[in-house]
Simulated assay, not measured.
Amino acid sequence: MPQLIFINLPVADLSRSIAFYEAVGAIRNQACSDDTAACMVLSDVIHVMLLTHDKWRTFTDRQIPDAHASAQVLLCLSRDSREAVNAVVDQAGGAGGRIDPNPTQDYGFMYGRSYADPDGHIWEAMWMDPAAVPNL
Rank of each mutant, 00 (worst) to 15 (best):
Q3L: 12
I7T: 15
I7D: 05
L14W: 00
S15T: 12
S17P: 02
F20P: 13
I27W: 01
C32W: 14
S33Q: 09
D34A: 10
D34I: 06
T36W: 01
S43W: 04
D44C: 08
V45H: 08
V45L: 09
I46S: 12
T52I: 10
D54G: 15
D54T: 15
K55E: 15
R62L: 12
R62T: 06
Q63F: 10
P65T: 09
P65F: 10
D66V: 05
A67L: 13
S70E: 11
Q72E: 14
Q72N: 13
V73Y: 13
C76H: 13
C76S: 15
C76G: 11
S78D: 01
S81D: 00
E83T: 12
A84L: 08
N86T: 09
A87S: 11
Q91W: 04
A95C: 05
I99H: 10
Q105V: 15
Y107R: 09
G108C: 04
M110H: 15
M110Y: 15
Y111R: 04
D117M: 13
D119A: 10
G120S: 08
I122F: 00
D129N: 14
D129G: 04
P130F: 05
A131M: 00
A131V: 00
V133P: 00
N135Q: 11
N135E: 13
L136E: 01
